[in-house]
Each structure stands twice: as C-alpha cells, then as structure tokens.
Design a protein around this nucleic acid. Structure first.
Length: 104
DNA sequence: CTGGTGACGTCTT
DNA sequence: GAAGACGCCACCA
C-alpha cells in the first residue's frame, strides 16, 4: 500500500509519549513539511474509527485545544489530557515549556 | 482536471 | 493582547 500523508501523520502521532503534547506545526516539521501544519489537523479529522491514536496529545501552537470550548470534542480532549496528569493554565491553556514533547 | 474545505501558523494592524 | 488577512496543500466530490 502506498504511504499517504495521512498515514505518515498517524504514524507520528502514535509516537507521542504519554503525558506529553505536541503542536500541529511541530509534527509537520518532523515530517519535513513545516508548512503543512493545517494538514496534520486535517489528517486527524480523517482518522478511521478503527485506528486508535493519542490524538488528544496534539494541540495548536498557542498551547490550546483547537476545538470550541463548548464542543464535546474539547471537553473529551481536555479530560483525556488531565487523565495523563497534564494540567491547564487559566483553565484552558497548556504550558508547552513543561509538557511540550521534545524528541531527540 | 477544478474547486471547496480546513484539529494551523505567521504576519500585520 | 486581540482580531483579521493570507498562505499552505492533501483530500474528496
């Protein structure tokens, strides 16, 4: 099977350690395509239901969840992160200095 | 092939 | 700090 962009993204997201978070732009940069940050998010949106991914560990460059605060997705993602001991500042922002994934 | 869409990022007011 | 404009390009109809 040919490797599509989506599959590369999914494969990378699977490597994010528990308790850490990464931004869309950061993931895109790891794939050698810093300008495709938007497509990282798009790829996650296209994730099949039978594929289990730690998608909740992916946030935007602002350290915020990209969903609306009123959405069910936002609440679920936040809950998943807090379950991994990831705390929020001001109730809705993540401190990237502390929880940012720093791969070597 | 063409066009619309969009879990984003960066620059400019 | 906040808000708007623009660029980016994979995927789908």
């Amino acid at each position: 099977m040919k490797s599509t962009w989506n599959q590369k993204v999914w494969n990378l997201v699977k490597t994010i350690p528990r308790g850490k978070v990464a931004s869309y732009g950061q993931l895109a940069g790891m794939l050698g395509q810093p300008r495709k940050a938007r497509h990282v998010g798009y790829a996650l949106h296209q994730t099949p239901e039978d594929l289990v991914l730690p998608w909740h560990r992916v946030i935007n460059a602002q350290g915020r969840i990209s969903f609306s605060e009123h959405s069910q997705e936002y609440l679920m993602q936040k809950a998943m992160l807090e379950a991994e001991k990831v705390t929020f500042q001001d109730g809705n922002r993540i401190d990237m200095k502390v929880y940012g994934w720093r791969p070597k």
